[in-house]
Amino acid sequence: MIKFTGVFKAFPKSGLALKDVSFHIAKGEFAFLTGHSGAGKSTVLRLIYAEEPVTSGEVRVSGFNVAEISRRDIPKLRRRLGIVFQDFRLLEDRIAEENVAFALEVTGARRAGIAARVMRVLTQVGLAAKAKAYPRELSGGEQQRVAIARALVNEPTVLLADEPTGNLDERATRGVFQLLRDINASGTAVVMATHDLDLVRQAPYRVIELQEGALVYDSGVDEPRDQAAST
């Protein structure tokens, strides 16, 4: 599903962001990417959705060789992924259902089915009642639910979440996390970057920890994760 093999990523100004990172996330798996800010969590995600080119090594995502992907194929890759950010990235001038429908429209989906599919995911994230609300009329947790609905509407095989609870209070955090777990339970792989260790401890999921660009711990292959969680 997602396979990193000896991946390096260098930025012209800040130098090496990832050093020899290798891991494999299987279909339907839930994995946390942890580490301090600047450890390289977001960089890993950005390489997965081909926002940044790979410096060296191999990145395979859902059948695509991302290290050598052509510009033309990037949209095809992204349609298989759902992406959620800390800052939601909703279009402020469109209501919730338009924000979700947008993700279907750009893929050239048939108009007839769009409304029903949008309503279905909004119901799934618990926001059917606020379909007509603008993002500014929604709480942070609700906005993130709209963003998750947008990520889900294309029925992705993987959901990438970059600090999805970073801007939320505790209650909203629990709600969004539970939603991600439900999504995973229905078969979608979830890769969630977070530095919220409380959240990581709550669930028995795999933990991949980065430190200064290097993978220092992977509960999928290493010993019990209590070690890492305590560092």
Partner: peptide, 16 residues
């Protein structure tokens, strides 16, 4: 530009 960035994220082609 923000809207364009989001369109790209959700898989819009350059032509679209």
């Amino acid at each position: 530009s923000r809207e364009i960035a989001i369109m790209r994220l959700v898989g819009a082609t350059d032509g679209f």
